[in-house]
Design a protein around this nucleic acid. Sequence first.
DNA 1: CGCGTTTGACCAGCGC
DNA 2: GCGCTGGTCAAACGCG
Length: 508
Amino acid sequence: MEVAVERPAPVKEEKRADAKPEMAAATGSARSLPIVFESFATTQSDAGIKQEERTLEAAKAEMGEVREENERLKTMLSRIVNQYQSLHMHFLDVVKVHEQEAAKAKLPAAPAPAPGADGVDEAPDDLVSLSLGTRSNGARRKGHERSSSSSGTAETTAGEGQLSLGLGIARGSGVPADDDKASGASAAPGVLNLSSDSSSANDAAKPARDDAAASPPCATRKSPSAAGEGVDDEVQQQAKKARVSVRVKCDTPTMPDGCQWRKYGQKISKGNPCPRAYYRCTVAPHCPVRKQVQRCAEDTTILITTYEGQHNHQLPPAATAMASTTSAAAAMLTSGSTTSSSPASLAAHGHHLPLAAAGLLGPTTMVSTAASCPTITLDLTTPAAPHSLMHSTPYAAGYESKAVPAAWSSGYLAYGAAPPSYYAKGSLALGHLFGGGLGVSSRPEQLYAAQSYLQRTSSLGGGGHGAVAPAVTDTLAKAITSDPSFQSALAAAITSVMGRGGAAAAQK
DNA sequence: CGCGTTTGACCAGCGC
DNA sequence: GCGCTGGTCAAACGCG
């Protein structure tokens, strides 16, 4: 703790009596030290007085310490809350836009199936509920989401230059066995773009956020090849320093992320018998993106992939997810470090970045600022039992308590601009999304993720939500799990959205 | 023959 | 200043 402890010069007894209420007032209600001043004024000898003086000094010092710590915590808390609120508003924007787009697209385009629960079977693409969070508004949105994803437009961000997250996660029924990874050209039907931008509402207040969140991708796009390196060194460096580490259970040598990589090195790193492989993006000649792949020492089935840098070229939709992740991570991490008092001190105190501290990242997501390269770790390996899909697992139960950070229960959210219920629903959904969605590994776990989410939301909203029957969610989740890129896509989506949110908050 | 991988060497950053 | 470690380079090698 790097608290500047005030050690005032020894004071006389008369002063001490004055100092007491002052200090008590200063510390406020944060903490009260049981110091009894009256007692020693009458009975102490000189020696005793001196000793008491020392005691008093110590107490003062402690109080000062406590006071400063209290202030720091308050500041941090308010920062966290601010960031959360802005993120949440942002999130709601996305949701709203999505809904509107979906509603528009629904009429002319997709023969939107009946919004009933049974419709899900025939339209697995609605799984893509990457709009997961959108459900916070009610079950009625289900139909909208379906149409939004199946309509394939979802081009809310097209032409806006905003961070757009193309998720090649939906192999909907309408997309007959498309290889959404490589081909990518016809990715539209299977792609859900998560735009944090209220596309229709081009509010003027955006520029700041744009700068913050989208600057990395923009910066690289601005100078795609213009000397590749050397331009915008600062941005490049920042982007390069921020890393996204993904832990996934994977049998293949590398995680299928839709990008083309060329191996350029391999090392045995300390503390892990498994060699670490170094890959470089080969989609474009001078793409600065690299990744490191290493198997976990404890469990060799776990693949740890660390992405670094930002692509300076167009990517296939399947690869866009991870690309967005790294961009978002860069934005989020850099903004987090600038808004935090000191990353080093935070790390030293065991604190994480605000979002993580608020519990938004969930238990399987970690933000590390301790290292020279700030890293987001998405742990897609799950502690949950793969078979406990239909019910809450201990993990889920344990998580839910974590999913609602103290700030939420303390009523912070209720004071936000949006209706409290909105916050409550959305926040829980978000938390659950992170907990279940990110904490999943391969197929069954993903199933669990989607299912638990749906169950959660259905239990939240009361009337109308009951439409989401377990059987339906089962089918839905199965559809999700049929796509191997679901993990990375989901992780990317979340990280991306959060990155923008954090960056936006940082700009405020 | 071209492309990708392997592998030893080299370099830079960091801690002691 | 030295050693350790992580990251990168580039020649050699293998494969289609």
